[in-house]
């Protein structure tokens, strides 16, 4: 190697090594652009429904039309980005199958999430749904898994009234509802504790053949739930990709004529996710190249010192 080449290589190594100390504000800016630009450009990529989304879709399809369904909104606005698209699609799916829906929440703000979904999806796309006979909002109940446990033996004890204060006997849909074993399907949108895991442990494990359990979960929680699929949870949607795939399946069979964007939220969010993931990979590679360059520079410096 000539002296010039040696100097050039050394300079490159030095520059790469300096990348290790890159101001994190540049990373924040890059991530902001990676997410923001695809949103503004409405960037979309083709999605192919995976086995989990297909299993979830089929599990709900297999429940007889017009069944009574319990839907638990176990999340809050922090997880709305991931879970709301699947909640929208599942409510549309259930309503298209004419299921009767009972809503509950084990998270304090879950009731608000359910209210919004009822307003924006159930009543907007299926205005024939009547409160009390087609759907009921039982609201939030403190107690985490003990609420689930109690619902397996005595629902009126766990929820003496609906969210507006009406006793269950006044509401035809739930007047005879004693336990969760009387519903055909339980759906939980789960962002953590309490959530899908607790529904498996305290409801499904005790009564494995009485109802179908389907969960929509955040990406970080998905790994904890995979061991329960498919025996203890017949269906499971993981993160925004699961929502995007499921949206495709639902809208293909039950298309909507107005406000289609409501059921394209998952797919719309996959564009920014792809670019953000590519940026992450790029950053990791860059960090490792900088580390190698830094080590190489150090070892050369060390040799020099010995000489």
């Amino acid at each position: 190697m000539t002296t010039d080449e040696h100097n050039t290589a050394g300079g490159l190594r030095a520059q790469l090594a300096r990348v290790s100390n890159l101001d994190r504000r540049w990373i924040f800016l890059a991530m902001g652009l990676a997410v923001g630009v695809p949103i503004l450009l409405k960037l979309r990529f083709p999605e192919v429904p995976g086995p989990l989304a297909i299993a979830t879709f089929n599990a709900i399809e297999a429940v007889p039309e017009g069944s009574r369904v319990l839907i638990a909104f176990d999340y809050d606005p922090a997880s709305e980005g991931e879970l709301q698209p699947m909640a929208n699609a599942m409510l549309h799916h259930c309503a298209s199958r004419k299921h009767k829906m009972v809503f509950i929440a084990l998270w304090p703000l879950g009731k608000q999430m359910a209210d919004e979904t009822i307003k924006n999806v159930l009543l907007a796309f299926h205005p024939q749904y009547q409160y009390g006979t087609d759907y009921v909002q039982l609201g939030y109940k403190a107690g985490n898994e003990s609420v689930i446990k109690m619902m397996t033996t005595n629902i009126p004890q766990a929820f003496p009234s609906d969210a507006s204060g009406k006793t269950l006997s006044e509401l035809p849909l739930v007047a005879d509802l004693e336990s969760v074993q009387q519903v055909e399907l339980i759906i939980t949108f789960s962002a953590g504790y309490p959530g899908a895991k607790e529904w498996v442990q305290y409801a499904k494990s005790s009564y494995p053949d009485d109802f179908v359990l389907v969960a929509g979960s955040t990406g970080v929680q998905a790994n904890q739930l995979f061991p329960y699929y498919p025996k203890q949870m017949e269906g499971m949607l993981a993160a925004i990709k699961g929502a995007a795939e499921y949206e495709m399946l639902v809208t293909a069979k039950y298309p909507v004529t107005k406000d289609k964007e409501r059921f394209e939220e998952g797919r719309r969010r996959m564009g920014p996710q792809l670019v953000a993931h590519l940026l992450m990979i790029g950053l990791i590679l860059l960090g490792n190249v900088a580390m190698v360059a830094g080590r190489s520079r150090q070892s050369r410096g060390g040799q020099g010192a010995v000489r």
Partner: peptide
């Protein structure tokens, strides 16, 4: 990569 459209 697998959890995005990059896989396809």
């Amino acid at each position: 990569l697998g959890r995005t459209a990059a896989a396809t």
